[in-house]
Design a protein around this nucleic acid. Structure first.
Lengths: 249, 249
DNA sequence: ATGAGTATTTCGATTTTTTGCAAGAACACT
DNA sequence: AGTGTTCTTGCAAAAAATCGAAATACTCAT
């Protein structure tokens, strides 16, 4: 029994069961628990599973949870959210795409503010339920499990029937020349429809995403009215956007 | 049972029910309350939920909860859910209304079963996201904060465009003469539309709701095809329904 | 083929973690 | 105020992790 064989076996077990017990593996493979422990430690160090007391669990064991999910760059996203909120006025109708930045925005919405809020994002809808003065309207449709937003014809259809004041379009990649891009075609369609349904398009975007590029194009950078980052508007990283017809915040 | 597993289980329960009781979890997991207490303390320290006296609640969530319902009737609802699942066949298209019993049903859906599932309920949609083989289609519309389901013209409109195999219609009150009733007018409209969109109407209902009555009528008891309770079909409490054209389960 | 050097595995002793239990304090509800 | 629950704290048993040493296997140059 080669070490590599054991590793594959363990990974396979983890894939199937989402968890393994040290003792089970030792039993099945007829080796000592020490060996299995060492194997699992190695796999843990190479990020192929997560070692826990008594065994190991699959890495993506809990990665679907809308709450509890670790939000990266939370600090930056909070700053962006705070800036974004200054754009919203009492009584307006807004549209929130998915994404953790927008989730942060939703969380920080003043609950005393009277608003109507459209969204195709499940986590954001859940969050908005806590805001008693916000009327939440969910864009229905087929739910994409990865992004936890609705997509597809029905959702786009519903979007085609509305015209909101501001759309906050969370974006994965923004590039001064290539504009906003995404890697998921269905989400691209959704975002295009969202832009079309809005008088004003605001793109909250953490600076590390600036200049990156994905497979499919949503729209040109000049179609965005306001670009919000955690940086100061005059930051050198934003130079490429300064000549454009968009507001930096 | 790994600690990690318990943690995931607890988080999942919190996500579904918005709250958990120490004793419930201890019971379900067959461990002592001390262990659960410790688990919840850890999850609390890592900001994954909020520890409260007697249990834990979801972060930032309006704890709308069936008021003062100390006994969560989890046991009964699980039984009903298990029975309900036997009615579902591979490949079918089903419609789930809101309610905690249906939530339990959604939770227990075998994840290997291929299904298409419509629902206007936010918590149920969240729960269904974890089922990789279930296609989830959310009925969009205005979100009612109390019931956490979508209501209103848009939702009813979307319902009018579908025809599903089975509808599981969670109900607050069922009465042999007066039929299914609700206290919220908008939800009544939704449920009427749901019945209309379904070939077969199944009503999961815990026995304590039998014979109760609310302000508005959804439909007659005979419009329900199957009534599922936690009781045996020949139980004396169900006598009033035995002469009707509906199946007891 | 041989033997030195290295890697892998096993074993035993010790330490750490986890878990359940119990007694008294703190808390919620009437 | 009284009465159940729930919390805290300390403790002990069991399970798991760690560490060092010894045994075994494997590599490779001679």
């Amino acid at each position: 029994m080669l070490k590599e064989e054991r590793h594959q076996f363990i990974l396979n077990e983890v894939r199937i069961h989402n968890k393994v017990l040290l003792t089970d593996i030792a039993d099945l493979l007829k080796v000592s628990v020490d060996t299995v422990r060492r194997d699992i430690k190695e796999l843990h160090n190479s990020d192929q599973l997560k070692k826990v007391h008594g065994g190991a669990v699959s890495l993506g064991f809990n990665t679907y949870s809308p709450v509890g999910k670790k939000v990266y760059s939370l600090e930056k996203k909070s700053q962006i959210a705070e800036k974004a909120i200054t754009l919203i006025k009492e009584g307006q109708v807004i549209l929130l795409s998915g994404g953790t930045t927008n989730l942060e925005l939703a969380r920080r919405l003043p609950s005393k503010m009277q608003l109507t809020c459209f969204t195709p994002s499940l986590p954001i809808a859940v969050q908005l339920l806590t805001k008693s003065n916000v009327e939440v309207i969910f864009i229905g449709g087929r739910l994409s499990k990865d992004s936890q937003i609705t997509v597809g014809g029905s959702a786009i259809n519903m979007l085609s029937e509305i015209k909101v004041d501001i759309c906050f379009l969370g974006t994965n990649s923004i590039h001064p020349v290539e504009g906003l891009t995404e890697f998921d075609w269905e989400i691209v369609q959704m975002k295009k429809a969202m832009i079309h349904s809005s008088r004003k398009v605001v793109s909250p975007c953490i600076s590390e995403k600036i200049g990156s590029l994905q497979r499919y194009k949503i729209c040109g950078a000049d179609e965005v009215d306001v670009l919000i980052t955690e940086l100061e508007p005059w930051d050198i990283k934003l130079d490429a956007f300064k000549t454009m017809n968009l507001q930096l915040l």
